[in-house]
Amino acid sequence: MSANSNKQPETGGFFARDRAWHAPALTPEYKTSILRSPQRALLSLDGTISEITGPVFGHSMIGELDNDLIHNYARPGESAIGERIIVHGRVLDERGQPVRGALLEFWQANAGGRYRHKKETYLAAIDPNFGGCGRAITDDDGRYAFRTVKPGPYPWPNGVNDWRPAHIHFSVFGHGFAQRLITQMYFEGDPMIWKCPIVNTIPDRKAIEQLIAPLDWGQTIPMDARAYKFDIVLRGRRSTLFENRLEGN
């Protein structure tokens, strides 16, 4: 919650998750899922106060360069190599209402498709000025933005010749722990999106399209950086009208 907001916190339960919209746990074309997928039915029940509540992250924890991946790992006066882009959008809930104060954390490969990670073995070069992580907190309208370089596609060991399309990973905290979400953003026009076994874990083409950020020509900064717009939707919550109050007793 931002300090200058006069809205009351919401205490309603979250809409049931539409599990058919998400990938199932077992998706054999993505091989690692085979031994990491629960096989029993999930235990379904309406959220309790343990899931309706969630941690709060204040704007004060965000450093000046946290939303600038071009510079937050670079040596002074230098910058990461690659196509300069701005990624921006809003975090909304299923009711279309902005989620303010949402913490977004993002991570990605560098412009050559190489991650800065000891388990990474791709032969593309490390960029000494690129770490690959950033974060932001949404404002009262649910807006966020960060600057980065466009990540490169890269091969990965799954099928003999599987490649990940260019993508940015997002981790999102809303207002309740039930809204916790990790996802990936893809880029408009990339033909590799439809070849990717991880993308194709999602059964519905419309759901996949929800992960593709369009080029946003209006927000593109002339002579500087192109913009992509990526809105994120978290679970909506019920109005508490007519519900038993949490404070109960």
Partner: peptide
């Protein structure tokens, strides 16, 4: 109503 953004794996990194 909007649809929730689909989840994707957190991946190895």
């Amino acid at each position: 109503r909007l649809k929730e953004t689909p989840s994707q794996t957190a991946g190895p990194y």
